[in-house]
Design a protein around this nucleic acid. Structure first.
Lengths: 220, 220
DNA sequence: TATCAACCTGAAAATACCCTGATATACAAT
DNA sequence: ATTGTATATCAGGGTATTTTCAGGTTGATA
């Protein structure tokens, strides 16, 4: 899950970023409206946190522009104060939810997860596929046989992406884009290594290799 | 599915090409208007992505010329920015859809598939023909008897082309063009070998040989 | 029915890609 | 600092896919 955090208050960014990462998100960051607008159109984010008070280009305009481009990524807007007007405008422009500053991280996290769940069709904090259950809060996976494993950050991100796209061949490029913030490393076999780890956790046959194409999660 | 990507921004090409290929397209590329115009008239593309800001010959003229030659291939144009005028001109000149830069690959993919579907009738996650079902996301084929087989990259491309053109005789040249970017099939019998392989997977009688002409997919 | 080109097919060879255990590095916690 | 855990790198062996090859089969034509 890759998030775009469009916020110019550096202190707030430094507060949010590590917490979001710990929650299992990959976080990219932009401190102005123009960059934010561009990045969201270029890259493949799963969710966006957008401060309406961004410099260079007002958040509202950025948001409108995204929606005109048919970008459906869920957007949570941060409004500077209890400006009722701003929130209404934001929702009209296509925001999925809003949050007034200041806020507690827990509240942001809850609202964010809510709009992400809504968008990806999840009802609760777990993803299920053919007997596999991924607890997205505790970052654990339970296999059909009942074994539960605690996942590391990268294992979790990988597996979640598989479980959000079951029975679909996913390329290594796509996987590494889900996991890393910056551009991908050319000749590295990290993905292969983690596929290997997931296989030892879940059992060999859940993830099938398609040479030259990618990997697919399917029933064993 | 063979696409022509007419775009001079090398970075964008390097971004798009692998993603398109991963989506199952064969991608040929041209970095200027003159070559693009020629290639589209010479070769048999299923779709064209045309940047209007090409060097040597403006994309709009290229497009007009194609349509005057009665080339009906679906064309998706890329406009440099939010130029309303350019888009209107593009559609007037015979484009099927437009997309303003920058854009999100998912959006391009969606629009591309939309215009291809409009043109070819069907193109979603599964192709069906007389009981055969090809899952284009998971790259599996299910025969009438219920057996499901996983396909390798080449098997998949071949079979998809057959299922997009059922009951039609397809020459070996055309088939190899679907598989390889540059066409060069001198003294090789790869196609024959893979036809053989498909027959063992589906059953002998699905693919019929027409000596000197090609092969045809039809009900057994 | 003889001939020849086109096609079929099993298997081996070539290749590209992947797996995996060992090791090194980064990072966090105590 | 020290320890422990997570992540990244590396290299060599392993394997599926793709290509080639060679001998057999088929069908059109005269």
């Amino acid at each position: 899950m890759k998030l775009l955090l469009a916020e110019d208050d550096k202190q707030l960014v430094e507060f949010l970023r590590p917490r979001l990462q710990r929650s299992g998100y990959t976080v990219e960051w932009s401190n102005n409206g123009i960059d934010a607008e561009f990045m969201a159109l270029e890259e493949n984010f799963d969710g966006i946190i957008l401060d309406l008070g961004l410099p260079q280009k007002p958040g509202l305009e950025v948001l409108k522009n995204w929606r005109e481009h048919h970008l459906t990524t869920p957007v949570l807007i941060l409004t500077a104060r209890d400006s009722w007007q701003e929130r209404v405008d934001g929702l009209k422009a296509g925001a999925d939810d809003y949050l007034g500053k200041p806020f507690h991280f827990e509240e942001l996290s809850a609202r964010l997860e809510a709009i992400l769940r809504r968008h990806f069709g999840q009802l609760d904090n777990s993803l299920d596929f053919e007997g596999l259950t991924l607890d997205t809060e505790g970052q654990t996976v339970t296999s059909a046989t009942g074994e539960t494993h605690q996942l590391t950050a990268i294992e979790f991100r990988l597996l979640r992406h598989f479980m959000l796209n079951p029975n679909k061949i996913i390329s290594k490029t796509e996987l590494s884009e889900q996991i890393y913030e910056e551009e991908q490393l050319k000749d590295s076999n990290v993905i292969e290594v983690y596929i290997n780890r997931l296989r030892t956790l879940l059992g060999k046959s859940w993830i099938k290799t398609f040479r030259g194409q990618g990997y697919r999660l399917s029933a064993p």
